[in-house]
């Protein structure tokens, strides 16, 4: 089977170009170079240090995802994001797996420490680009058929249920939850972040449980605490519980097809 990461790299690169050209994303080329170059360099350094083979694909995916989600005017924060993302794969590990999705952790750390200099713009995709994005993401599911489609669909199902349920509860018309679901940032999160096979639970039951917990946490943050980017915060907050879920609901660990998994690759 083909390595699904090539498809992801192609989709993320396409999205980045589309975002900059058509959607007026505030990503200057230098920032893109800093994020992508940064992850590759840090990955290379860690590979040398750990004596692991040079693995660029997962690092590139992390770099592209950072470009798509992280907004800043300061190149320094792009480099910091790249460093945090890749180092977390090598340094924060439990039971042979890295704990956090690299991009997710980098974003949350930057949001916490940058004093406002880094932000994530969940509305910037708009709903016009939504269907094209949906198509690309569903395409990704097909390519990843051996991957973690269950966690993506599980999350989306729970998230949709929570949004619909809340709108019903507060007497909002259907157009409101539908508008909230037609969100490009939500699709990116679903298909390129929470579905990371290396940081999700090993068993299918575990993954469904994890997806549901992230959906509930994100919903609580966004609709009861009135915060932004609920799913991002929930994923980072709940990732440390993955080893516990794996202990309760064990399953075989994931490894990338046709690939030696010594370098702990990741999606996003």
């Amino acid at each position: 089977m083909q390595d699904p990461r090539y498809y992801q790299i192609a989709v993320l690169t396409g999205l980045l170009v589309y975002g900059i050209v058509a959607l007026d994303f505030e990503v200057v080329p230098l920032q893109a170079v800093a994020s992508v170059g940064g992850v590759l360099v840090v990955q290379w350094l860690f590979s040398r240090w750990k004596g692991a083979p040079w693995e660029w694909r997962s690092a590139l995916i992390s770099g592209l995802s950072l470009c798509l989600l992280c907004r800043t005017r300061d190149i320094g924060w792009c480099l910091a994001g790249a460093t945090i993302a890749v180092s977390s794969k090598f340094l924060i590990r439990l039971g042979g797996k890295h704990l956090f999705n690299p991009t997710n952790l980098a974003l949350i750390v930057l949001l916490l420490v940058s004093d406002g200099s880094v932000w994530v713009s969940p509305g910037q995709w708009g709903s016009v680009a939504f269907f094209a994005l949906l198509l690309a993401c569903v395409g990704g599911l097909v390519v990843m058929r051996a991957g973690r489609w269950d966690v993506a669909l599980g999350f989306l199902f729970c998230w949709a249920l929570l949004l619909l349920g809340r709108s019903w509860w507060v007497h909002e018309p259907l157009t409101i939850p539908l508008h909230r679901l037609q969100n490009g940032a939500l699709l990116l999160f679903t298909f390129f972040m929470i579905s990371d096979p290396k940081t999700t639970p090993d068993s299918r039951a575990g993954r469904f449980l994890f997806a549901a917990l992230v959906a509930i946490g994100g919903w609580w943050w966004q609709f009861l605490q009135y915060g932004t980017n609920g799913p991002l915060w929930a994923l980072a907050a709940l990732s440390p519980f993955v080893p516990l879920i794996d202990r309760i609901l064990p399953g075989p660990a994931y490894s990338w097809p046709k690939f030696t998994p010594t370098s702990t690759p990741s999606i996003a």
Binding site: L23, D24, S121, P122, G123, Q124, W125, G126, V128, H179, R180, N183, T228
Partner: peptide, 10 residues
């Protein structure tokens, strides 16, 4: 300032 539930465009 920007909107989080609609696109904010220059």
């Amino acid at each position: 300032l920007e909107s989080t539930n609609y696109r904010t465009v220059r």
